[in-house]
Deep mutational scan, measured.
Amino acid sequence: ICKIPGCTKRYTDPSSLRKHVKTVH
């Protein structure tokens, strides 16, 4: 789960989550 407030994205893969946070936030 993405911990950024207001973001509801969920990831099972930690590397995908990290990439999401870097690119989207």
Score class of each variant (00 low, 15 high):
Lys22Asn: 15
Tyr11Ala: 07
Pro5Asp: 05
His25Ala: 06
Ser15Asn: 12
Ser16Trp: 02
Arg18Cys: 14
Lys19Tyr: 13
Ser16Gly: 08
Ile4Ser: 08
Ser15Gln: 15
Lys9Thr: 08
His20Met: 03
Thr12Ser: 13
Tyr11Ser: 14
Lys9Phe: 14
Arg10Lys: 14
Arg18Leu: 13
Pro5Ala: 07
Arg10Pro: 05
Thr12Met: 03
His25Phe: 00
Asp13Gln: 02
Asp13Leu: 02
Cys7Tyr: 03
Ile4Cys: 07
Pro14Val: 10
Lys3Arg: 06
Lys9Cys: 09
Thr8Val: 11
His20Val: 01
Lys3Val: 08
Lys9Met: 09
Tyr11Phe: 14
His20Phe: 00
Ile1Arg: 00
Val21Ile: 06
Lys3Phe: 10
Pro14Asn: 06
Thr12Gln: 11
Lys9Gln: 11
Pro14Trp: 04
Ser15Lys: 14
Lys3Gly: 07
His25Asn: 03
Leu17Arg: 00
Ile4His: 14
Asp13Val: 01
Thr8Phe: 10
Asp13Gly: 01
Ile1Asn: 08
Ser16Ile: 08
Lys9Arg: 06
Val21Met: 10
Thr8Gln: 09
Val24Ser: 13
Gly6Arg: 00
Thr23Phe: 06
Gly6Pro: 01
Leu17Val: 04
Pro5Arg: 02
Pro14Met: 13
Cys2Ile: 02
Cys7Val: 02
Tyr11Val: 09
Ile4Tyr: 12
Pro5Tyr: 02
Thr12Lys: 11
Val21Asp: 10
Lys19Glu: 15
Thr23Cys: 07
Leu17His: 05
Lys22Thr: 13
Thr23Met: 09
Cys7Pro: 02
Lys3Glu: 11
Lys19Ile: 11
Arg18Val: 14
Cys7Leu: 01
Cys2Lys: 00
Ile4Asn: 13
Thr23Pro: 07
Lys22Ser: 14
Ser16Ala: 14
Thr12Glu: 15
Pro5Gln: 06
Cys7Met: 01
Lys3Ser: 12
Thr23Arg: 07
Ser16Pro: 05
Lys3Leu: 07
Cys7Glu: 06
Lys3His: 12
Ile4Phe: 12
Ile4Met: 04
Thr23Glu: 14
Asp13Ile: 01
Cys2Phe: 03
Ile1Cys: 08
Lys22Ile: 12
Lys9Asp: 10
Lys9Gly: 09
Asp13Ala: 01
Ile4Leu: 04
Arg18His: 13
His25Trp: 01
Val21Glu: 13
Val21Phe: 02
Arg10Leu: 06
His20Ser: 04
Tyr11Thr: 11
His25Gln: 04
Ile4Lys: 01
Val21Trp: 02
Gly6Tyr: 01
Cys2His: 03
Ile1Thr: 05
Val24Asn: 10
Ile1Trp: 00
His20Gly: 05
Gly6Leu: 02
Thr12Asp: 15
Val24Pro: 05
His25Lys: 01
Lys19Pro: 04
Leu17Asn: 04
Cys2Arg: 00
Thr8His: 11
His25Ser: 04
Leu17Met: 10
Pro14Asp: 12
Asp13Asn: 08
Cys7Ala: 02
Tyr11Asn: 11
Ser15Cys: 10
His20Ile: 02
His25Met: 02
Tyr11Gly: 08
Leu17Ile: 02
Lys19Thr: 11
Tyr11Met: 11
Gly6Val: 01
Lys19Asn: 15
Lys22Asp: 15
Thr8Ile: 09
Cys7Lys: 01
Arg18Met: 15
Arg10Asp: 11
Thr8Ala: 07
Lys19His: 13
Cys7Trp: 00
Thr23Val: 08
Asp13His: 03
Lys9Asn: 09
Ser16Arg: 08
Leu17Ala: 07
Thr23Ala: 11
Pro14Lys: 07
Ser16His: 10
Ser15Gly: 13
Pro14Phe: 10
Tyr11Pro: 07
His25Leu: 01
Pro5Ile: 03
Ser16Leu: 13
Lys3Trp: 08
Pro14Ala: 13
Val24Glu: 15
Ser16Val: 11
Arg18Gly: 14
Val21Arg: 01
Pro5Phe: 06
Thr12Gly: 13
Ile1Tyr: 07
Pro5His: 03
Cys7Gly: 04
Arg10Ala: 14
Ile1Asp: 11
Pro14Cys: 08
Thr23Asn: 10
Arg10Ser: 14
Val21Cys: 04
Cys7Asp: 04
Val21Pro: 05
Pro14Ser: 11
Lys9Val: 10
Ile1Glu: 10
Thr12Pro: 11
Pro5Val: 06
His25Tyr: 00
Asp13Tyr: 00
Lys22Tyr: 13
Pro14Arg: 05
Lys19Val: 11
Ser16Glu: 14
Ser15Pro: 03
Thr23Trp: 05
Ile4Glu: 12
Val24Asp: 15
Cys2Trp: 00
Gly6Met: 03
Lys9Trp: 12
Arg10Ile: 09
Thr8Trp: 00
Lys19Leu: 13
Thr23Gln: 13
Ser15His: 08
Lys19Ala: 14
Ile4Ala: 06
Ser15Ile: 10
Gly6Ala: 03
Arg18Phe: 08
Val21Ser: 06
Cys7Ser: 02
Lys3Asn: 11
Ile1Val: 10
Lys22Met: 13
Thr23Ile: 09
Ile1Leu: 05
Arg10Gln: 12
Lys22Val: 12
Asp13Trp: 00
His20Thr: 03
Cys2Thr: 06
Ser16Tyr: 05
His20Asp: 08
Arg18Asp: 15
Gly6Cys: 00
Ile1Gln: 04
Ile1Gly: 02
Arg18Asn: 15
Tyr11Ile: 11
Thr8Leu: 10
Ser15Thr: 10
Cys7Thr: 01
Cys7Gln: 02
Gly6Ser: 02
Thr12Phe: 03
